[in-house]
Simulated scan of single mutants.
Amino acid sequence: MNEINLASILVAKRREKGLTQDAVAAFIGVSKASVSKWETGQSYPDITFLPRLAAYFNISIDDLMGYSPQMKQSDIAKLYTKLANDFASLPFDDVIAECAAIIKKYYACFPLLLQMVRLYTNHFTLARTQEQKEALLNETMTLCERIEAESGDMQLSNDAVMYQSVCCLALRDPQRVLDLLGETVRPMMPKGVLISQAYQLMGNIDKAKETLQAELYQHVMAVFQGLLNVLQLNINNIEKAEAAFMRASDFARIFDMERLNPNNVVLLYALGAHLYCVNKSPEKSIELLEKYVDTCVEGFFPFELRGDSFFDLIDPWLNDFDVSAPRSEQVIKNSMMRDVLMNPAFNSLHEVPEFQRLVQKMNRFIE
């Protein structure tokens, strides 16, 4: 991220062109002392002089000031990782203040704004009070509205609408979700398949294969998430929920979900344990919680979405779209304990020795 650094740039450009301070002063119409103060940082040029200075050195005003309103995608990814780690180790208010300063500075860099939306969506639960949570969610929605209205990028706009819907759900405003997304699910156009066929007609078979794998990968993840949602919605209907659990388990095995997306696997074990605990099957619940803890401890970190022997062409696609962990490792570990093992749904298991052993194992892992 570039800081405004007009003084050093003026010196560098003047020397690069072999000019004196007198020459610059004469062209701009100021004294040599004024130019000297600009170059030492004692003062700044009047705003009306900036276009003249930029034209004199044949550069843009942004280049003259050493400022860019945009960030490279690689820098955005690094910044996201840094801020996610900060949320795990620094006071929440301090990190939010830093985020606000970054947003203000790069308010026209819409890929960055979308990542800040993602950052806020994944960390608002760390706020100390409900008022803080709601304020951050509302601020996130304002950023989403700006991206949708101003970015001119269809994909960024679509992503912003999805994140805005997530915020509305967190704010318990379901009607606004329906207003944003519509009230019915429309038949899905096979965009990736069409793109793949286009590459095939162009003779670019490798790109056609890569695109088709990316499309299928997304559908696999969407189907698995759908099965988890069916399981959760029917948690008190053992027959329907168990059918969803068994199908999701088969799906996870067939598509090697533990390698492709270990987060999906731990969600499956956690929801399955909840299902059997609610329906008075503590032995099955403990069995799945043991699988949950083992996967968290032994197969989750370092978190990385990646392909396998079947999806062997998607790694470059995953890297391009920055699908790294949305939160820092420590925050994720804490949520593994808080959101699952300490969930009130498992209160009936607290005195069971096997459950206590799992809690101890998870505590050791977190520490």
Rank of each mutant, 00 (worst) to 15 (best):
residue 124 F to I: 00
residue 35 V to D: 00
residue 210 E to P: 07
residue 263 N to K: 13
residue 142 T to I: 13
residue 292 Y to G: 04
residue 365 F to C: 07
residue 339 D to P: 07
residue 117 V to A: 04
residue 162 M to D: 14
residue 260 L to R: 12
residue 195 I to L: 12
residue 140 T to N: 11
residue 5 N to C: 12
residue 306 R to F: 05
residue 81 T to W: 08
residue 337 M to G: 01
residue 73 Q to D: 10
residue 299 G to K: 15
residue 170 A to E: 11
residue 22 D to K: 14
residue 344 P to I: 14
residue 39 E to D: 14
residue 21 Q to K: 12
residue 52 R to N: 06
residue 301 F to M: 10
residue 86 D to A: 10
residue 254 I to D: 10
residue 236 N to S: 06
residue 95 V to T: 12
residue 96 I to Q: 00
residue 153 D to E: 08
residue 167 C to Y: 04
residue 298 E to W: 06
residue 211 T to S: 04
residue 297 V to I: 15
residue 24 V to L: 05
residue 340 V to N: 02
residue 189 M to Y: 14
residue 311 F to D: 12
residue 214 A to C: 07
residue 219 H to W: 10
residue 176 R to N: 01
residue 205 I to D: 04
residue 275 L to M: 07
residue 261 N to Y: 08
residue 343 N to I: 10
residue 216 L to K: 04
residue 249 S to F: 08
residue 196 S to P: 03
residue 45 P to R: 13
residue 87 F to R: 06
residue 367 E to A: 07
residue 308 D to L: 09
residue 329 E to C: 06
residue 256 D to Q: 14
residue 244 A to M: 13
residue 189 M to A: 14
residue 351 E to D: 07
residue 145 E to S: 10
residue 51 P to L: 09
residue 317 W to P: 01
residue 106 Y to P: 00
residue 149 A to C: 05
residue 91 P to M: 03
residue 162 M to R: 03
residue 51 P to V: 11
residue 94 D to L: 06
residue 172 R to G: 01
residue 252 A to T: 09
residue 270 A to C: 12
residue 199 Y to S: 07
residue 57 F to S: 04
residue 149 A to E: 10
residue 306 R to L: 02
residue 281 S to E: 14
residue 317 W to F: 12
residue 206 D to A: 13
residue 154 M to W: 11
residue 206 D to N: 09
residue 326 P to S: 05
residue 45 P to S: 13
residue 322 D to A: 11
residue 277 C to E: 14
residue 14 R to L: 02
residue 26 A to Q: 14
residue 344 P to A: 05
residue 6 L to V: 10
residue 137 L to S: 02
residue 163 Y to D: 00
residue 103 I to Y: 04
residue 239 E to H: 08
residue 177 V to N: 00
residue 67 Y to E: 03
residue 295 T to V: 00
residue 169 L to Q: 05
residue 146 R to P: 01
residue 179 D to S: 14
residue 339 D to T: 10
residue 58 N to G: 01
residue 17 K to S: 04
residue 130 Q to K: 15
residue 151 S to H: 08
residue 129 T to A: 15
residue 359 V to S: 04
residue 203 G to F: 07
residue 137 L to N: 09
residue 307 G to L: 15
residue 64 L to W: 11
residue 188 M to G: 00
residue 313 L to H: 05
residue 303 F to G: 00
residue 23 A to S: 05
residue 295 T to H: 07
residue 42 Q to W: 12
residue 55 A to N: 15
residue 245 F to Y: 15
residue 297 V to Y: 08
residue 39 E to R: 03
residue 174 P to N: 05
residue 300 F to C: 05
residue 63 D to R: 13
residue 213 Q to G: 08
residue 166 V to F: 01
residue 358 L to Y: 07
residue 45 P to L: 06
residue 256 D to M: 12
residue 317 W to G: 06
residue 153 D to T: 03
residue 98 E to A: 11
residue 223 V to D: 13
residue 136 L to R: 14
residue 351 E to L: 06
residue 367 E to H: 15
residue 276 Y to L: 02
residue 203 G to M: 11
residue 108 A to K: 09
residue 318 L to K: 10
residue 63 D to N: 11
residue 5 N to Y: 02
residue 259 R to N: 15
residue 81 T to D: 02
residue 72 K to S: 04
residue 297 V to H: 07
residue 319 N to I: 13
residue 103 I to P: 00
residue 304 E to R: 15
residue 84 A to C: 01
residue 127 A to G: 03
residue 298 E to G: 02
residue 28 I to P: 05
residue 92 F to H: 08
residue 339 D to S: 12
residue 102 I to C: 00
residue 58 N to I: 00
residue 276 Y to F: 11
residue 175 Q to L: 10
residue 4 I to N: 09
residue 134 E to Q: 05
